[in-house]
Design a protein around this nucleic acid. Sequence first.
RNA 1: GGCCCCGUCGUCUAGAGGCCUAGGACAAUACCCUUUCAAGGUAUGGACCGGGGUUCGAAUCCCCGCGGGGUCACCA
Length: 519
Amino acid sequence: MTVRTRFAPSPTGYLHIGGVRTALFCWLLAQRHGGKFVLRIDDTDDARNRAEAVRPILDGFRWLGMNWDEGPTDSADGTSFGPHQPYFQGQRNPIYEAAAMKLLAEGKAYPDYTTSAEQEAAREHAKLARKPYVHRGTNRDVPADENVKLYAAKKAPLLLKVEPGLKVSFVDAVKGKHETNTDTIRDPMLLRGPDENGLCRAVYNFATVVDDIAFGITHVVRAIEHLENTPTQILMYQALGATLPIFGHVPQVYYIGKKMSKRDTPALSADEIAKFKACGWTEEEIKGRDDLNIIAVAYYKEIGYLPEAIINYLCRLGWSLDAETEFMTVETLKQNFTLDRVTDAPGNYDAKKLFWIQGEHMKLVPTAEKVERCIPFLQRAKLIGDTLDSDTRLTLTKIIEASGDRIKLFSDILAFATPILKQEIDRDPKATEKAFKDPAAKLLLTEFAEVLKSAKSFDAASLDKLTHEFVASKGLKLNALQLPLRVAITGTGMGFGLFDTLAILGKDVSLQRLATVLN
RNA sequence: GGCCCCGUCGUCUAGAGGCCUAGGACAAUACCCUUUCAAGGUAUGGACCGGGGUUCGAAUCCCCGCGGGGUCACCA
């Protein structure tokens, strides 16, 4: 039997990082067994802004490379692909109704004419008695054919009849054995009472079960908050005569000890805002994006993370391969992921560790690919044009090579490329002051400019030798020249190798920039 | 409140009765390397929620506390 897993996001307008972690486990499980990963949109509400709410979610999965075998099309307009269409719950209500009618006819479900006031009172009563309220509806014991007639005449919530005194047990693939007595399970609602248009919409629990059966889902992997729903859902599977899938409930992702939520997650820091601005974003553009937040996948894409780093980190949060492996490629994950090594306790999101993992993955990206992936960031910042001439490409390649491990995020390219590529260099006042507060610095630079002028070769190695000889002849260390020179030719006190910088700039530009400082 | 789940360094985790004077990683700190910044190297500090059992022996099993979370909807 092929493994079929599914992830069912609600259309919220952004892809939640915690949701991705759960989806990742589903996806990895399917990949591991050569199975299928299904995406279903749980949009039982009105789907007016569907595209707007669904597209960011699909985009997020596509960017991460977590492709789905069946589900909504990329258009996000409500169309689907795959053998069990449609994959939008909002379009599947007739299917839920048909399943419910079957249960009604079989006497497994019944209409409940209890008024909300009555229910309210019963609930209140139970609360005072410090007992759980287990709802059982009015027409439980009415014969099936009569209930069918009654229901046709007067719609009401349709409830599943739960047989009391039984045990529902299952073995959760991550939590282990779980057992519940049916005496504590209320008769669950299948279909709601009619809305203003007379439509009886399925309730989440029922829609999920009907869909999971229809889609042939073999492994239901979802967040732990659904653990308590499971016995109820098992009863529905049984009533529907379906075989049970394997359930696996995974713990949540926390942020500083609390469930990760948009509200409790910090806004962009000043540094991050500066970074986005350097990348060509305007204040309005930044403010207009409420998904530029560590909780949303879009943030990581926009600031230049690698999808494989996100996947590695997220998977590692709540799962381990062994006692020490931290760095894992997606391929390794696909080959080794198992539900039984998912942790029991919730895990806290740690931005620093993610950043470290990102750096590790970045080390493996070949220069040519880095160039390609940095280009969009440079273009957005208008540092390079829409088309790239071969000279610029070559310079860019040199910059990226010289930057080495310093480029952690693709957006970091701006910090290294701007001082080289921008004609009018931005001078950091603090660095400038520090570099030239000793008047001897300018004199030294003036002499060094003459040395540079007569340099025969202008490659990094020659410049290294030449410069060291120069400072040695002065009885100085390189440090005496390093900062003034760097600030003079780049405007900043930080950057990659000094000699690489000179070499990439070339003799003319280097001398020219030196001259502007010295005059 | 009932029911359910969870509790190992600051954080992510390893740990299925002796391999545990509890291992790894991130973070922190110090030093080394060095051309600033990274990267790299070395080192240091840092945890079994508490209390009782069971056992020759418990982070691991049992009980009781404590703490955190989930769930009890015509939300998903």
